[in-house]
């Protein structure tokens, strides 16, 4: 039996040692259905998809290293990881919060459409690809350190913040192809990048007051999770990366025949 009795009404500890991903997630599903609101997962070692099918407000505290697709398709729970996360953290996430006290692997926040992901240190390749937003649903991905290539590629919405805290002084972000194909959303990057590191579809701007207010709130929340001082970071220097075009690939295609644009050639219009 891997479950210990809860110390208080709704807090439960689960020893994940030796459990397969499916067994662990089944256990979590049962506990959440039974009304647990705070679950401590001990000895987690690579189990995947934690939090995927728990569409209720529950806090999962993970001790050990969770496997790939942590919180994929998740809608609601809060996950705190006291270690590194692997690939696919927050994949296609819909809502909820993931806080990682360490690194995260590739495709962090891929296609997220809501919720918040806070990574204290660095992330791997392809973070934030194709994040998207719709009305009040707007995902936020905050990377405390730096990221690898293809950061925010095809980004269609949401907010991506890179704080560069793990970069030594004088070092810059090394990611290439940042924001390639970006057609929505925004990236706030602390530190600098060379123009050749950016996709052709990306514009660079200073932060305006609205940006600064938005960023201040996000940074405060990030620092709250990791007990850091926001004053060190808010000062910047930040740049804002934004999509230059909402339809970057429109001109790739031969214009459709004239009728498709609803135009009748002038010489044919009567009168």
């Amino acid at each position: 039996m891997h479950v210990e009795a809860g110390r208080d009404g709704n807090t439960v500890e689960v020893d994940a040692a030796g459990l397969s991903s499916r067994e662990l997630n089944l256990r979590l599903r049962e506990l959440v259905t039974a009304g647990a609101t705070h679950i401590k997962l001990l000895n987690v070692a690579g189990q995947r998809y934690i939090g995927s099918d728990l569409d209720r407000p529950v806090t999962l505290e993970i001790f050990g290293t969770p496997g790939n697709d942590l919180g994929s398709f998740m809608d609601g729970p809060s996950i705190i990881v006291h270690a590194n996360a692997q690939d696919g953290c927050g994949n296609t996430m819909n809502g909820g919060t993931i806080v990682v006290h360490g690194l995260a692997g590739d495709i962090t926040g891929l296609s997220a459409r809501g919720g918040k992901v806070f990574i204290r240190d660095d992330v791997g390749y392809r973070a934030g690809i194709h994040m998207k937003q719709y009305q009040e649903r707007c995902p936020v991905l905050v990377i405390g350190g730096t990221a690898q290539d293809f950061l925010g590629e095809y980004m269609a919405g949401g907010i991506l913040v890179v704080l560069g805290l793990t970069l030594g002084s004088g070092h810059r972000h090394r990611a290439n192809f940042v924001g390639t194909g970006m057609h929505g959303g925004v990236i706030y990057l602390r530190g600098s990048v060379e123009s050749q590191q950016l996709g052709k579809e990306v514009g660079v701007a200073e932060l305006d007051d609205q940006d600064k207010a938005l960023l201040q709130g996000i940074i405060s929340e990030f620092c709250g999770h990791f007990c850091m001082d926001p004053r060190d970071m808010v000062a910047g220097p930040f740049i804002k990366l934004y999509p230059r075009y909402l339809r970057p690939y429109g001109p790739l295609y031969a214009p459709t025949h004239r009728g498709a644009q609803g135009q009748v050639p002038r010489w044919k219009v009567p009168g």
């Binding site: 937003q133 707007c138 919405g157 907010i159 929505g184 959303g185 925004v186 579809e201 514009g203 701007a205 938005l214 804002k240 934004y242 999509p243 230059r244 075009y245 909402l246 339809r247 970057p248 690939y249 429109g250 001109p251 214009p255």
Partner: peptide, 23 residues
């Protein structure tokens, strides 16, 4: 041609709807 459509709130005000065609 689609100038009435709004850019998402977070994009730069001058974001163009479509990349320029070289024609």
């Amino acid at each position: 041609m689609t100038s009435t459509r709004q850019a998402p709130a977070t994009t730069q005000a001058e974001a163009h709807v479509q990349a320029p065609a070289y024609s």
